[in-house]
């Protein structure tokens, strides 16, 4: 484990690297607080509302951790939104089919859901590493097929009528005000950051993205590492799907549409380079928060979805242009 002194230095470096993003985040909080007060709705910049934002973005956040690894290797995974739908549907179907005891079938359902994510990730990884299909194409195909699969097995209808315990993962609060899913996303972010920065696997991921040929000629097992990166991304997306399904209390084949774009947006806003080799989980977290706070802030002051989409597009552009100015790509 990294020593304590190091992690302080790490925090400082993180703050310095993400100073522009963090100030954007603070600016957002101030702006929405001020605008909210004018409309008679104070309290946007509060711990409670931040936890609420984090809670809402937990699903995207878990996917974003996996996506960060994929993008750092120079790849992309467009299938994450479809995996969310498929895994949620699988979990709900198994719980409904099994009946009682509900806790047992919940575990079976979740296990099957995570396995389906692993399988989808493994297929993507194999297509990219063994058949040399560009990640964009391979995962685009998977995105379509997996979405279709989720619709096929449910006949396009959501699976509801689930036991109350089904909602535990998504809605339970460990202590009042602290949802279980927020703890889970924080745990995954910390684990992801340590894996990327302090393990051999993370170093190899960064090396492959930085210069794949040099990495291979330095003995990095490029194929294996890339395969695992897609596998991890698939499993995390399935976990996100299970949490979302639990929160909704149903398994719907229609959820997660365009999630891949929201996730890629968060990763890119967080400073990870789409050409690979450069990026961090911390950045992804901040990027995610910038986007999520923006969305909920706009809702707070009464701007509707269409307006939010326009603003989000501008923010993504702004973040990437800022990144270019800093000299990275």
């Amino acid at each position: 484990m990294p020593e304590r002194g190091r992690s302080f230095a790490g925090t400082r470096r993180l703050v310095l690297t993400f100073a522009p993003l963090l100030s954007a985040l603070v600016l957002e909080l101030i702006v929405f607080e001020v605008l909210g007060r004018r409309q008679g709705v104070p309290g946007f910049a509060s711990v409670e509302s931040l936890i609420a934002v984090l809670n809402q973005s937990a699903v995207l956040g878990i996917m974003a951790v996996g996506m960060t690894f994929v993008i750092i290797t120079g790849g992309i995974d467009l299938s994450v939104g479809s995996i969310v739908a498929l895994s949620g549907v699988l979990c709900a179907m198994i719980v409904q089919w099994g009946g009682s005891p509900a806790w047992l079938w919940l575990i079976v359902g979740m296990g099957a859901a995570l396995l389906s994510g692993a399988a989808a990730g493994a297929v993507a990884g194999a297509l990219v590493t063994r058949f040399a299909i560009p990640p964009f194409i391979a995962t685009l195909a998977l995105m379509s097929s997996l979405r279709g699969l989720a619709n096929l097995i449910t006949d396009g209808k959501p699976i509801s009528d689930l036991p109350d315990s089904y909602m535990y993962l998504g809605r339970h609060h460990l202590v009042p005000g602290l949802p279980l899913s927020v703890l889970l996303i924080l745990g995954i972010i910390v684990a992801g950051a340590i894996a990327l920065n302090h393990t051999r696997f993370g170093r190899q991921v960064l090396a492959i993205g930085g210069n794949e040929e040099a990495a291979r000629l330095s003995g990095v097992p490029v194929r294996r590492v890339k395969f695992f990166v897609y596998l991890i991304c698939g499993v995390l997306s399935a976990l996100a799907g299970v949490i979302l399904s639990s929160r909704l209390g149903s398994g719907s084949p229609k959820v997660g549409v365009a999630d891949e774009l929201a996730v890629i947006a968060a990763v890119v806003v967080g400073g990870t380079s789409l050409s690979g080799g450069r990026g961090s989980i911390g950045g992804t977290l901040v990027g995610l928060l910038v986007v999520a706070v923006l969305n909920s802030g706009l809702t707070w002051i009464g701007v509707e979805t269409f307006g939010q989409q326009v603003v989000l597009g501008l923010v993504i552009l702004g973040a990437v242009m800022l990144d270019r100015l800093k000299g990275g790509v």
Binding site: L206, A207, G210, N211, E213
Partner: peptide, 13 residues
């Protein structure tokens, strides 16, 4: 540059 180094990484790495 193409095969020996990961240019974006540090001397240490």
């Amino acid at each position: 540059k193409l095969q020996g180094l990961v240019l974006g990484m540090t001397v240490r790495e």
